[in-house]
Amino acid sequence: MDVDAYLDRLGVAWPAAPDLATLRHLQERHLAAVPFENLSIHLGEPVELTEDALFGKIVRRRRGGFCYELNGLFAALLRSLGYDAALHAAQVFRPDGTLGPPLDHAAIVVSLDEEDWLVDVGFGRFSRHPLRLSGVDAQSDPDGEFLLLDAPHGDVDVLLDGKPQYRLERRPRPLSDFVPMAWWQATSPSSHFTKSLTCSRPTSQGRVTLSGDRLIETVDGVRHEVVLESEAAIRLAYRVYFGIALSRLPTPPGESPLTRGELSPTLP
């Protein structure tokens, strides 16, 4: 990995030591600089879960991605910087409180100073700072109050402002374990990623999201939404708000080549 190029992508100088303060800063900068987005699914681009492919997309092409991509590459960066970082699978809670399928999400656990820390730069709105996995009390974060509770089989339930987000496995997994589910997320008509188009990142005052032609900005808790009326305006929004230059716009949900099964997953 070209660590210098990755750190430049994040706007971060080479850290002095792999400590908690540096980890906190890296997570903040990753969330601010690299958007959570599913554009590849609606551009007909395959989702490739290899370090080289992810580096080319996120660092060289200055794109974002979804959980497997963002946390997969960020974990590799953390290891290159001397952290004990591993991917862990999670099941996302549905609105009705039931759990999604296994490996529905990938997060990072960092073992540091005899503590385990949950780090996640690939879940959309989530914590901006590492969360202590062994904590029994609520943990305050700029994006809300998090509570981590013991769950069956040694897993951990993660709650944001009292609402369950996902159930985290305790055992680590290699990135390759997530390939089949990443393919399902990118191709299945039942996947919410094929049903919606999103590009989002936190800002110093809230969050900015581009969903199709809708630009949504939340500033100090106040939501502002505007409909962009031309392709030129949508391209400009991608470039200005997310640093993404697109030669063509993603097709509407349901019409992407990936959802029609014309592309196959690229296995590592």
Rank of each mutant, 00 (worst) to 15 (best):
N38C: 09
I41F: 06
I41K: 06
L43V: 08
L43H: 14
G44S: 08
E45T: 07
E45M: 10
E45K: 00
E45H: 14
E45Y: 06
V47H: 09
V47C: 06
E48M: 13
L49Y: 00
T50D: 03
T50N: 10
E51V: 11
E51K: 05
D52S: 14
D52K: 11
L54F: 01
L54C: 03
F55H: 14
F55I: 09
K57H: 02
K57C: 01
R60L: 12
R61K: 15
R62F: 04
R62A: 11
R63N: 12
G64I: 01
G65F: 06
F66L: 12
F66W: 14
C67S: 02
C67M: 09
N71V: 01
N71P: 05
L73Q: 00
A75L: 08
A75W: 02
A75K: 05
A75T: 08
A76L: 12
A76S: 11
L77T: 00
R79M: 07
R79G: 15
S80C: 09
S80D: 15
L81G: 08
G82P: 06
D84L: 07
D84K: 06
D84G: 04
A86L: 01
H88V: 07
H88Q: 15
H88I: 09
A89N: 13
A90W: 04
Q91S: 05
Q91H: 10
Q91G: 00
F93H: 11
P95E: 13
P95V: 01
P95D: 09
G97R: 00
G100I: 06
G100D: 00
G100W: 04
G100Q: 03
G100L: 06
P101R: 02
P102C: 08
L103V: 11
L103S: 12
H105E: 03
H105P: 05
A106V: 03
A106Q: 06
A106H: 01
A106R: 00
A106N: 05
A107W: 02
A107T: 10
I108Y: 00
I108F: 05
V109T: 07
V109G: 02
V110E: 09
L112M: 09
L112K: 15
D113W: 11
D113R: 15
E114L: 15
E115F: 10
D116K: 11
W117M: 15
W117E: 06
W117A: 09
L118Q: 02
V119Y: 11
V119L: 02
D120K: 02
V121G: 13
V121L: 05
V121N: 08
G122H: 11
F123L: 03
F123E: 00
G124N: 02
R125H: 12
F126R: 10
R128M: 15
H129Y: 15
L131D: 04
R132Y: 02
S134C: 07
G135H: 05
G135L: 13
V136L: 04
A138P: 03
A138Y: 05
A138I: 04
Q139L: 09
S140E: 12
P142N: 07
P142G: 07
D143F: 12
G144K: 04
